[in-house]
Amino acid sequence: MDKGKDMVVKFLIVALLQVAIFASIYETNCMECHKSMPVKIDKFFYRYLLKYSSEENLKSALTEYLKHPTKEKTILQAGLLNRFGIKKPTTLNDKELKEAVDEYWEIYKVFGKLK
């Protein structure tokens, strides 16, 4: 019986490790927190798009905010800002951050999605 439990635990650990290994930086570092938030991560994207329009502007504004978040730079509405406050600066290095932001753009960009 114990042996059987051990097997299940081992299997879970392997599975988790596998997820950890194959999951992207975006998924492990952004989605992990955002998925439990009441406002979904795509809403943030469209607020950024509304303000920054192009890929280049959006990515640089987002990167800048993630590195040095301030009240002035946030795109959060006042109500949400009061409730949640601003996030802490990212712990990712520039390369990882770029990778995460690029993936975020690729998932939610409008290009090629309109019909």
Partner: peptide, 9 residues
């Protein structure tokens, strides 16, 4: 078009 004049649709 977006602000970099790239056509969106």
């Amino acid at each position: 078009y977006d602000s970099s004049k790239k056509q969106i649709f």
